[in-house]
């Protein structure tokens, strides 16, 4: 399969992730869009790993996965903490630091 297939798919996935982050106001959906962007980068890592026949790309995907797991745990804890304090998680309401 031509490499451009994987590059194109990864780019489209990343663009969808950008759209989700910029357009949605539910922070949980924003987080899921972030995961989509991680996923597109991982796909490109694995594709180039197979292309160059070098295993290191797959190891990077492994590390990205663990870091993403940590990030999700902390991020969801932050969302829960914000919900406890403000009783809402709408992103537009989180403007306490605005001048």
């Amino acid at each position: 399969m031509p490499m451009s297939y994987f590059i194109g798919l990864s780019v489209v996935m990343f663009a969808m992730g950008i759209l989700g982050v910029l357009l949605r106001r539910n922070p949980l959906v924003v987080f899921m869009s972030l995961e989509l962007m991680f996923n597109s980068a991982n796909l490109l890592f694995v594709a180039f790993s197979a292309y160059h026949q070098v295993l290191d790309g797959q190891l990077f995907v492994f590390f990205v996965m663990t870091t993403a797991a940590a990030e999700v745990a902390v991020g969801l804890a932050l969302i829960v903490a914000v919900f406890k304090a403000k009783r809402t998680i709408d992103l537009d309401q989180m403007s306490s630091l605005k001048g």
């Binding site: 031509p2 759209l19 910029l22 357009l23 292309y51």
Partner: peptide
Amino acid sequence: QRVLGILLAAAFLAEMVLFVLLRGAPTVAG
């Protein structure tokens, strides 16, 4: 916000397509 978001995502898409077209992607994978 909506218009700007879609514009920015389209700009990213166009940028990447342009990059791949100019740089040339390897043709065979795996």
